[in-house]
Structures are given as structure tokens and as C-alpha cells.
């Protein structure tokens, strides 16, 4: 049913640290790799080596400039499904293919029910859903539901592929419904926020803002002289050659 389940205690989601993200796209690539064989597979690519490559990705890394001049920042910004508490993408679905799980809050698509009307992608403000024109159905981030509960994997690997691969630990996974969870404490400590809160979708995923810049008033002043490099004095035979050639 596309009616939303009553709000559950458990709300699994991601916390993305915009201060740390270096924009390497590893999360997007590992997401693509895992999900090309996961429950939403295949993530179709059209003309992958052609002039106009086009394909389904669940995670896309944008880079923004914010502010001007010395106070301006370049911010790498991974964008994926936020597993909203009140997602219109679920309620607009005419077939019941889109659903939100009561037990952990993950928003999923049942591809066997999807008629490919695309309305859910219109209803998502964040661009989380991408239509697979080859399969004729809508696809979206599964929060790696086929990884996080997968007992065939080591416990340390039971996190979404994007989190597992991030080389700078800019991505965190956990239960945002539990105020004492690590991710919730991180959000509280760093002022994590919702994207487009005015839409009223109540996203589960949170973004941590870039930290305030350190004082850089000295930047641009006279360059600080470096200490002279210590030159090792040669002695013995090589020292004699050195002195001889130095005349």
C-alpha cells in the first residue's frame, strides 16, 4: 500500500559530512557497483562508451560554490535518496509499487508492480529516483537493504556501499530515530540539517555543514621566512674534494 506506515521507532539513514567530503565520487562508483548486482539490478547504462552516456545512478556527487571571495567555499555535495519520513513519492504511486518500510523507514520500489508512470520521480524534490528506460521501471537507492542485514557479510561490512567505501569517512550510517545513536549524536553536535525543509518531506538523512573556517587574516600578508635548510657538512675524503672544488 502506498499509504505511509505509522512512524516507526527505527529510522535508518545516512549522515553526510560536507566538511570532509573531497568529491572523489568513490561513494557513487561503489554504489553503482554494488547495486548493479543488488536487489535493484541492473542499473542500466545506455551508450556507456558512446557520445551521450546515460545511466541509472542512485548517488550523484555535485560540487557547489557558496559565498564570494575570501569567505567563499567549494563544497562537494553527494546527493541520494533521503528516505523521508513523509515522502510524497510513495503516496503518489498509483500501484503500490513504492512503499516505505514500517520496520526501518527505508523507501523502496517493488519493480514487479511498477508501471513506469514516473510520477514518483516528479514528486521527489531531491531527484532521488531515476527511471530505467530499458527495464521500464523506476529505480532508487535501497539504502543497501541487501547489505545492511546480510549475514553472509562480516558485521563491519553491513553498511551501505557508499559508507563502506568513503575514503575520508564523510558518510555515516545508523538509526536516526534513536536520539542516543552515534549518528544522532553527531547530528546534534555538528548542527546537522535537512535539505529543503520547506517541502515538508521530513528527510531522514542529514547533512553536516562545513565547519567555520579557521582565522586566515594572516593569509596574504608578507610571506613568513622559512628556517634555513640544514646542510650536512661532508668530512673526510669527500670533505676534502668539496673544499677543493669550492675554491
Amino acid at each position: 500500500m502506498t499509504s505511509l506506515p505509522p512512524p516507526g521507532a527505527k529510522r535508518l539513514g545516512l549522515v553526510i559530512d560536507l566538511d570532509i567530503c573531497v568529491g572523489c565520487h568513490a561513494c557513487a562508483v561503489n554504489c553503482k557497483e554494488w547495486n548493479s548486482g543488488g536487489m535493484a539490478a541492473p542499473l542500466t547504462d545506455l551508450q556507456p562508451y558512446g557520445v551521450e552516456p546515460d545511466g541509472v545512478w542512485f548517488n550523484r556527487v555535485h560540487t557547489f560554490e557558496a559565498g564570494e571571495g575570501a569567505t567563499g567555499r567549494t563544497v562537494h555535495f553527494p546527493r541520494s535518496c533521503l528516505h523521508c519520513a513523509e515522502p510524497d513519492c510513495v503516496t503518489v504511486c498509483p500501484t503500490g509499487a513504492s512503499y516505505k518500510r514500517a520496520e526501518d523507514g527505508i523507501v523502496l520500489v517493488n519493480e514487479d508492480l511498477c508501471i513506469g508512470c514516473k510520477l514518483c520521480s516528479w514528486a521527489c524534490p531531491y531527484g532521488a529516483r531515476e527511471f530505467d528506460s530499458d527495464a521500464g521501471v523506476m529505480k532508487k537507492c535501497t539504502l543497501c537493504a541487501d547489505r545492511i542485514y546480510n549475514e553472509a557479510l562480516e558485521e563491519v561490512d553491513r553498511v551501505p556501499a557508499c559508507v563502506a567505501t568513503c575514503p575520508v569517512s564523510a558518510r555515516h550510517f545508523g538509526d536516526l530515530g534513536d536520539p542516543q545513536s552515534e549518528v544522532s549524536l553527531l547530528v546534534a553536535a555538528r548542527g546537522g540539517y535537512d535539505l529543503m525543509p520547506e517541502m515538508g518531506y521530513k528527510p531522514t538523512n542529514k547533512y553536516l555543514p562545513p565547519r567555520p573556517r579557521r582565522d586566515q587574516t594572516t593569509c596574504g600578508a608578507a610571506p613568513v621566512a622559512l628556517a634555513p635548510v640544514v646542510v650536512a657538512e661532508a668530512d673526510g675524503f669527500l670533505g676534502w674534494i668539496d673544499r677543493l672544488l669550492s675554491r
Binding site: 560536507l18 568529491g23 555535485h62 560554490e65 564570494e68 569567505t71 563544497v75 531531491y126 535539505l195 562545513p210
Partner: peptide
Amino acid sequence: ATGLGSLGKVRLFEAP
């Protein structure tokens, strides 16, 4: 959309 308004005007620097 990005939550970066506190830093100033937001512009796309590089598309994904």
C-alpha cells in the same frame, strides 16, 4: 536545496 545558504549565494561549480 543544499543548506549552504549561510555561506552565501550557492552556484553549481561542477555537475556530477
